[in-house]
């Protein structure tokens, strides 16, 4: 039987809008795959009521890290949780990034927008273990939105940064930066996580260039286990078009299965 896990927070790093929490969980660490997520209870009380879906940022031995943006009441309260406090966790859940086959010397591009960088660190380390050639594109609104740049570089990963206001790196959208670098480094596989508008642009580029792309989607989730049917996105899968549960089919979905909403176009 899968169970919720009571873990003790072992470390907390904070930036202005972002938080990194670490904890020990041999149970989750032994099973977790890059791209999977955890449902984290914010408090033991009834407000905020629901768990929050947060992707797994790193697995090192028996230690897990999550990285998130303080963007609402739930993540703001979660960001206040301190070292030595208990955290109630359910997971790992969902389907992660495709890592089957030979990645040796394969060119891969990872694109993270803002908090979307979170699962790409776990993925980058797994791809590095498989001897893939990796470039990570990391975009934010300002230089304050790139807190994990050094962490990637400390692990020997190449990071290409952009900011919308030009305060650091390439000035503009990360998708434009990636597109402009395409001639020098044409990937065989693209992995991305970030806002829907960014993912939609990547899906378009991937389709035009005929490169397989896997996108990690974000959604409001009620349960994370397939019971509530609240987290749906429109997909075309095995010839069927409809609302599919992101917690069950994803959160990582092949780009060519996603039917984008009008607002993302």
């Amino acid at each position: 039987m899968k169970r919720t896990d009571q873990v003790i927070i072992t470390d907390r790093k904070m930036w202005k809008d972002y938080v990194l929490l670490s904890f020990k969980s041999p149970q989750i660490a032994s099973k977790a795959l890059p791209g999977q997520f955890l449902m984290i209870r914010i408090t033991p009380h009834s407000y905020p009521l629901l768990r929050r879906p947060i992707s797994i940022h790193a697995v090192e031995g028996e230690n897990i890290a999550i990285f998130f943006q303080k963007s609402g009441i739930g993540t703001n309260i979660l960001g206040l949780r301190k070292k030595k406090e208990l955290l109630d966790i359910l997971g790992p859940l969902g389907n992660g990034f495709g890592l089957k086959g030979d990645f040796s010397h394969k060119k891969t591009v990872l694109i993270g927008g803002g908090r979307g960088i979170a699962p790409l660190f776990f993925l980058a380390n797994s791809l590095a273990d498989r001897k893939a050639e990796i470039r990570t594109f990391y975009g934010g609104k300002t230089s304050h939105d790139l807190p994990l740049k050094e962490k990637f570089e400390a692990n020997g990963l190449k990071v290409f940064c952009s900011t919308e206001d030009g305060s650091f790196g390439y000035k503009g959208l990360i998708t434009d930066y990636f597109n402009s670098e395409m001639r020098q480094f044409r990937p065989e596989r693209i992995y991305a996580c970030g806002p829907d508008a960014m993912l939609k642009t990547i899906a378009d580029i991937a389709a035009k260039e005929n490169i397989p792309a896997e996108l990690s989607l974000e959604s409001i989730m009620g349960c994370g286990i397939g019971a509530c049917w609240g987290c749906v996105k429109r997909l075309k899968k095995d010839g069927v078009t409809g609302w599919f549960r992101i917690c069950q089919e994803g959160p990582v979905i092949p780009a060519d299965q996603i039917i984008w909403a009008e607002k993302d176009k």
Partner: peptide, 23 residues
Amino acid sequence: REGNPPPRLVETSSGLINAIGLQ
């Protein structure tokens, strides 16, 4: 049944409003 388009859920004070639409 296809159900309603998202967003289908919103959390409120100690509660949850849903409009799944019986997919």
